[in-house]
Design a protein around this nucleic acid. Structure first.
Lengths: 136, 136
DNA sequence: CAGGATCCTCTGCGATACTG
DNA sequence: CAGTATCGCAGAGGATCCTG
């Protein structure tokens, strides 16, 4: 168990750029950070694992269609906002595991509700859309 | 009450472009459609009104920071997917009202949970972020 | 009032190539 | 393995002007 308490990593270009204005309390800010599809899908995956930890490559496999770049950025953002914890093992080959923080876990029920809603209602949306397009 | 049952409107350029591939059942599709911040904020506003109807300009005033263009696009998308109903009154001056459909309403509890979570936890996120940035 | 059409900018994001 | 850096383009989205 050679885990580093703090991952030895300087700020990324993306992070530096995204750091930007701190922002006030409003939803707008938070929604901008959490509202995109990748964030939601990554968190759903992390919540779905029994052991609660996943490696980078496992996440990439599970989150269908995500690029390596977007997964990295999404995870960095989640870590930065205290929703995900990054466990760095300085082994060879390198190993990194991700898990939800307590704060992150508190968000999970909502995400699962959302996911359930989609499963239950996407057909209705699909139908509505087809009909709407027909009468246009 | 000179309401048209169906708004007499041909497909917009934006809509035609966005029509694209119908898409399979997956979350990915739905999240792409519903996952952006404007969609969520517009729906929250529509849900917040007692009378359940809002005019275009009222919505624009309430959803802070949204441009006229994005509000139009967002509303069109919501209408197309059966989440919002558009009431068109051919008066002078023109009047249009929007309200959530039953399908749209079924999504509201989740959005409000999300909104509540943000209000309760944004400070924690903020703190986590500041600390994370300090030790970088 | 409630948008449509156009222009133009900025960035999201994939593809690719390189490292510890 | 788990990233980082760079390039490049399509698309998001604001600003502006115009109409029924």
């Amino acid at each position: 168990m050679s885990e580093q308490s703090i991952s030895p990593r300087p700020l990324t270009k993306d992070e530096t750029v995204r750091a930007g204005a701190a922002g006030s309390c409003n939803q707008h800010e938070v929604l901008t950070r959490l509202g995109d599809k990748w964030t939601i899908m990554v968190m759903l995956q992390l919540a779905a694992v029994p052991g609660q930890r996943m490696r980078f490559s496992a996440l990439k496999r599970k989150v269908a269609g995500i690029s390596q770049r977007m997964l990295t950025i999404t995870l960095r953002m989640l870590e930065r906002n205290g929703l995900v914890i990054r466990h760095y093992f300085a082994e060879v080959p390198l190993r990194v595991e991700y898990e939800l923080s307590p704060l992150g876990h508190s968000l999970v029920p909502m995400l699962e509700n959302f996911s359930a809603w989609i499963a239950a209602n996407w057909q209705d949306m699909e139908d509505a859309r087809l009909q709407h397009d027909r009468e246009a």
